[in-house]
């Protein structure tokens, strides 16, 4: 198992390198002079020249590439053009918020989606099945920012149960209250995905021979689902959760804006609007690394769920 983990981590390295290369090329393919893009067309030639050399754009391309790789791998993505702080500092400052939001969304998604999907599979073509399908379809088709606004209107504005803005709070209870609505917003979308895959994967598993064997052993319905079916149904669910993380980032941008919450989403938007070229490049690396990590974790989870996944 340990060997498998190490091997899988080593496999992530070439992916990371390829991804850094793509980002490097992408940034340089963007038409126009990045110095002008950043400083605006009113900038003097001297300041543009200074900017170019600061960005290393005067070096030959292969020198730029090696330099970029070396810096990126040591966590140095340069300084934000707008704040003057290092990109790493900027990211680390908001990363906990994003991680917390993501984890909470995943928790809510699993908490709602797994039972709902299982229930639908057990009552196939009866009302729980239809109800779950309608709920998950709604969750899937409703854009994240629309559901965010709806949640705000209902729980914050109308019922006044939860705060409208969810900035930092030192009190842990306030902190959770701040987290509740944004997490619910992303969690519902997550739950919609999880419900759907859980349902179909459960239906598959419930038709398997070993489920019939378990029934022939005198296993009760509850035990059948919890001990025999659920674990076997989990692999596709984990796959979808892993894939969904990519979408989750896009949705978290919108969620963070609607709830005025700090996070990577907000940071990327700020970098875009202020044309903060170095911050943007750094954020691309951070996001890509995030996705690679999630993929690696997903692969490792397969091994935990299914003993047939080989470790060699």
């Amino acid at each position: 198992m340990i060997r498998h983990v190490i091997k899988r981590l080593l496999l992530a390295v070439p992916t990371l390198l390829a991804m850094l290369t793509v980002i490097f090329v992408l940034v340089r393919l963007v038409p126009g002079d990045p110095a002008i893009a950043m400083l605006g067309d009113q900038a003097t030639e001297a300041s543009l020249q200074a900017m170019r050399s600061q960005l290393g754009l005067n070096e030959p391309i292969h020198v730029q590439y090696v330099d970029f790789l070396a810096r990126a791998l040591s966590g140095d993505f340069g300084r934000s053009m707008t704040s003057g702080r290092t990109v790493l500092e900027e990211v680390l400052q908001v990363l906990p918020y994003t991680l917390e939001l993501t984890a909470a969304a995943l928790f809510i998604g699993a908490l709602l989606g797994l039972p709902l999907g299982t229930w639908a599979a057990l009552r196939r073509n009866a009302w729980p099945d239809y109800a779950s399908r309608i709920i998950s379809l709604t969750g899937l088709s409703l854009p994240g920012f629309v559901s965010a606004i709806l949640l705000l209107l209902v729980f914050a504005v109308h019922l006044r149960w939860l705060p409208v803005m969810s900035a930092a709070a030192s009190d842990p209870v306030d902190h959770l209250r701040n987290l509740a609505l944004p997490a619910l917003n992303l969690g519902i979308i997550m739950a919609a995905y999880i419900t759907r895959v859980t349902r179909s994967s459960m239906l598959n598993v419930l038709g398997e021979d070993y489920i019939r064997t378990a029934r022939a052993k005198g296993v009760s319905q509850t035990r059948l689902v919890l001990r025999h079916a659920l674990r076997n149904a989990l692999v596709p669910v984990v796959t979808v959760v892993g894939l969904y993380f990519g979408t989750l980032i896009g949705n978290s941008v919108l969620t963070e804006i609607v709830f005025t919450r700090p996070g990577l989403g907000k940071l990327i938007l700020g970098a875009l609007t202020s044309r903060d070229y170095t911050l943007l490049q750094g954020l691309m690396v951070v996001f890509a690394a995030f996705i690679i990590t999630v993929n690696t974790l997903t692969d490792l989870a397969y091994g935990l769920i299914d003993p047939r996944v080989t470790y060699d």
Partner: peptide
């Protein structure tokens, strides 16, 4: 079917 009649995760 001995190949499929046992639970693969237990």
């Amino acid at each position: 079917e001995p190949m499929t009649s046992l639970n693969p995760t237990m």
